[in-house]
Design a protein around this nucleic acid. Structure first.
Length: 858
RNA sequence: GGGCCCGUGGUCUAGCUGGUUAUGACAUCGCCCUUACACGGCGGGGAUCACGCGUUCGAAUCGCGUCGGGCCCA
């Protein structure tokens, strides 16, 4: 390329490289004996579009992947798609104006698959444009049989190990979605409800009970008081009658009851909340299920059967008020559990479901074997593990998910779990190839499907070759993910990997923060703070967005999207481009003997490499980029290039060749250092320079160069001369009458005379200078307040005083002036003496620096 | 109610295994179109590192407390 445009055309350059890069460069080599670096990348949920949060997440991954490749690792940067789940089902229902039960299961599933394929294609586009070095030979799609055979295999194996079982158990239930959900899928929000005070009657007298959920009265199975509560001792162990529904329940004593809440008597229902479940299990209470799967009251509710929860609540309150069972109501702030997908209030129902056994201690121990970046994120996982009360409910009453490979014998009820060799299969499509133990071959297929976390929680195993490869590459090296899914994806992955293979899933987990909008809030379309990556690609390019990802802050912190960061990134790219444009016709990759200034630069370059490497090893991308920017902009452009311009423009000489080769080294090294962050501009520069791709180069190694102190001094002197000229209001290229540099370092003068546009003499030893007072400057602030009306005459007298005499007197502590024949003594601080520096009788200015003094002739 | 994180110039942010003139970006002020770059150069101003107490010769950095913000959970 002979023509280098003045402005960096990011669009043209980036699109060119997107088109022409060879994707096979990024493929993991299963045969290689290089050390492996497998990244267990997040499989995104392919719905909607690739957003800034995804971009941030993938930028982190790509920085690491590219860096590790340059460090000689056999890197796997796979790409998965976590397809299954409710949002896609809901979207399909919306788009086709149907509900899932109006079309056959298979048809519905096909519609979901089609929608997902379209979303994946959109993601492909955005990811390609972002310049990600994804290994597309290791792509996986959880909805395809090639993947869900693994999910089903893991189900079968864990079932054989006794880690998966089916049981009647209370579960979190979303009445809108019509499915059980796991605790990890429940979120909480505060709502204002009413606390109702009700009268219960027993043989010992009236009991007053407060509840926020009177509609659960027909589900009441006991009431409880604190064992030490003196008010209620007489009731303990006795029976009390449930009003309106008229049946008896026992009165229990339990220390968990809060005596200060309501009346201090609590009604235990099956089930109002998690605490009810605990009491129900502890006290072996019976089950009265008053709410069904659609959120309607059941037969136990008598006349209220069939009502929705809301209706029932209203009617029951009205009826109890009529009978004066409710005697008081007050507002109550309360946190309610919501389905995280649709925000509907969840109910707790007892259901026969499939569960995965959770061993919190084992998960915590495994988490300790993993390096957490930043470390405190491990605490989040541990806290979650400690708060888990029930096993993981993995069955869902939905369609678009991995089928549970199980049948039930119609005649004897035996559960038949598929054999591994039958997989993959959908029990609704396939009959088992064997008969039941009882001889029957009439089976009912399992209609329930698996929680999607069952798919994604084996991602580490799947990318490492599980279950087919004999050389299973476990553990993998890195799990990058957001902190929002520590309790789900990280937790379940540790659980499943440890259960299935007995190992930790990864050596290191790198947690990134969330991308926030410019107003500091979570990006959302309703807040109007939503930015799409494509907008940034169009205005500033992918490299700029990638720099934002690196510069935003240290990993783990949420980072704000900021246009000013994008702009700053673009400016840096333009700066780099200008450096390159200037250098290209002047530099050469030649053997040369570097001078002092060259050795200074090469020393700084080494320091940069060391610093960048250290930061990359610690995943401190901001630190790395900051170091690179600082070097390129200040050290290289503002100082080195300015210093060696004269040499570069001059005729061929050993000094010129030294500058040519040093500048070449610097640019080529910077391009390599930046290539994990800004793959496009780095490639454009490196490829133009060398004809090779920067993305198959190795990471720079320090060459053992020390910062040359003479070169450093020259750089400092040049800066001092620039400052001097600026202070004097001179143009920076204005010639000076002469410069003499005194230093013990034996400074070379050619770069200094070039940069100062003046003759420069270099001498050893100390400058021979003398100070000569040249003027007296009266200090009016001192004189005025003290001498009032005499001040004017004093100042006049000082003006005519010999500067040398004034200086002598000032040194002695006071200055005597003669005003109208009267002698007045002034304090020393009343005057300042202006001095001139002379050297060999000529007036000079002296610039003092560490290791050198510079005399500038005036 | 519990856990975790955060509170640094106007804004965002680094540093936080204790000792630096406290990092960088954007913004701001002055000068400069010096043949790579005005998306530039040179120079400047601007932070009692939320507050209080403590540990220490020394704290933005450690401890306790207060206030404020965020996230997760009960």
């Amino acid at each position: 390329m002979s023509e280098v445009s003045k402005e960096y055309d990011f669009n043209c350059v980036e699109e060119k490289w997107v088109e022409s890069w060879d994707p096979s460069v990024y493929h993991f080599d299963w045969q290689s004996d290089k050390p492996q670096y497998i990244i267990d990348t997040p499989p995104p949920y392919p719905t909607g579009n690739f957003h800034i949060g995804n971009a941030l997440n993938w930028c982190y991954i790509d920085y690491v992947a590219r860096y590790k490749r340059m460090r000689g690792y056999n890197v796997m940067f796979p790409q998965g798609w976590d397809c299954h789940g409710l949002p896609t089902e809901v979207k399909v229902e919306e788009l086709n104006h149907i509900t899932k039960n109006q079309v056959p299961r298979e048809e519905f599933r096909r519609l979901c698959e089609k929608l997902t394929e379209e979303a994946i294609e959109r993601f492909h586009q955005s990811m390609g444009r972002l310049g990600l070095s994804i290994d597309w030979s290791n792509e996986y799609v959880t909805m395809r049989p090639e993947y869900y055979v693994k999910t089903q295999t893991s189900f079968v194996r864990m079932h054989e190990m006794g880690l998966i079982y089916r049981e009647d158990h209370p579960v979190n239930w979303c009445p809108r979605c019509g499915t059980a959900i796991a605790f990890a899928e429940v979120e909480y929000d505060s709502r204002t409800t009413t606390l109702n005070y009700m009268r219960f009657v027993s043989a010992e007298g009236e009991m007053q009970i407060a509840t926020s959920r009177p509609e659960l009265l027909p589900a009441c199975v006991a009431v409880a008081v604190h064992p030490d509560d003196q008010r209620y001792q007489k009731f303990i162990g006795k029976k009390v009658r449930v009003p309106l529904f008229d049946y008896e329940v026992p009165v229990l004593a339990d220390p968990v009851v809060d005596t200060a809440f309501g009346t201090g008597i609590v009604m235990i229902c099956t089930f109002g909340d998690k605490q009810d479940v605990r009491w129900w299990m502890e006290h072996h209470l019976p089950l009265r299920q008053a709410i069904d799967r659609e959120g309607r009251l059941t037969a136990v509710a008598g006349p209220y059967a069939g009502c929705s929860v809301g209706e029932a609540k209203e009617r029951i309150i009205r009826d109890m008020q009529k009978e004066e069972i409710i005697f008081k109501q007050e507002p109550l702030e309360q946190n309610v559990g919501l389905c995280w997908r649709c925000k509907t209030a969840i109910e707790i129902l007892s259901e026969r479901q499939w569960f995965v056994r959770i061993n919190p201690e084992e998960i915590k121990r495994t988490a300790e074997e993993i390096e957490w970046v930043p470390p405190h994120m491990q605490v989040r996982l541990k806290n979650w593990a400690d708060s888990v009360e029930w096993d993981w409910c993995i069955s869902r009453q939905r369609i678009f998910a991995t089928p549970i490979p199980v049948w039930y014998c119609r005649s004897c009820g035996e559960v038949l779990v598929a054999k591994e060799e039958w997989l993959p299969l959908d029990p609704n499509q396939t009959r088992p190839p064997t008969k039941c133990k009882c001889g029957s071959d009439d089976f009912i297929p399992e209609k329930d499907v698996l929680d999607t976390w069952m798919d994604s929680s084996i991602s580490a195993l799947a990318v490492a070759g599980w279950p087919d490869r004999k050389d299973l590459r476990m553990p993998t090296q890195l799990r990058p993910q957001g902190h929002d899914i520590i309790r789900t994806w990280a937790f379940y992955t540790i659980l499943r990997t440890k259960s299935l293979e007995g190992v930790k899933p990864w050596d290191t987990i790198l947690i990134n923060g969330m991308a926030l909008g410019e107003d500091g809030h979570k990006m959302s379309k309703s807040l109007n703070n939503f930015i799409r990556p494509e907008e940034v690609f169009a205005t500033n390019g992918a490299d700029a967005l990638r720099q934002w990802g690196a510069m935003g802050g240290s990993p783990g912190n949420d980072i704000m999207f900021q246009w000013k960061e994008i702009t700053a990134a673009s400016r840096f790219q333009q700066k780099l481009w200008s450096i390159f444009r200037f250098s290209l016709p002047l530099i050469a990759n030649v053997e040369a003997n570097p001078g002092q200034v060259d050795r200074w630069l090469l020393g700084e370059l080494d320091r940069l490499v060391i610093r960048a490497t250290k930061a990359m090893e610690a995943f401190q991308f901001d630190e790395t980029m900051k170091a690179i920017r600082g070097f390129a902009w200040e050290t290289l452009a503002d100082n080195y290039i300015e210093l060696v311009k004269a040499r570069l423009y001059g005729p061929d000489s050993p000094e010129k060749r030294a500058a040519q080769s040093t500048l070449y080294r610097a640019i080529e090294t910077v391009a390599r250092l930046m290539s994990p962050f800004t793959p496009f501009i780095s490639e454009e520069i490196f490829h133009t320079l060398t004809g090779e791709s920067v993305h198959v180069q190795s990471w720079p190694e320090p060459g053992g160069a020390e910062v040359d102190p003479a070169g450093l001094a020259i750089k400092e002197i040049a800066a001092a001369i620039r400052r001097y000229k600026a202070e004097k209001g001179m143009a920076l290229n204005a010639p000076l009458p002469g410069i003499v540099v005194y230093s013990e370092l034996g400074l070379e003068t050619f770069d200094l005379s070039g940069v100062a546009n003046s003759t420069v003499e270099s001498r050893a030893g100390k400058p021979d200078i003398e100070m000569k007072p040249v003027a007296v400057r009266p200090q009016i602030k001192i004189i005025g307040p003290r001498f009032k009306d005499k001040s004017g005459r004093i100042i006049k007298a000082l003006g005519s005083m010999d500067p040398a005499w004034a200086a002598e007197q000032k040194a002695s502590g006071s200055i005597r002036v003669d005003v109208d024949g009267v002698s007045i003594d002034l304090p020393a601080e009343a005057v300042e003496i202006e001095m001139e520096t002379l050297s060999a009788g000529l007036a000079v200015d002296v610039l003092r620096l560490e290791g050198a003094s510079v005399l500038v002739r005036r």
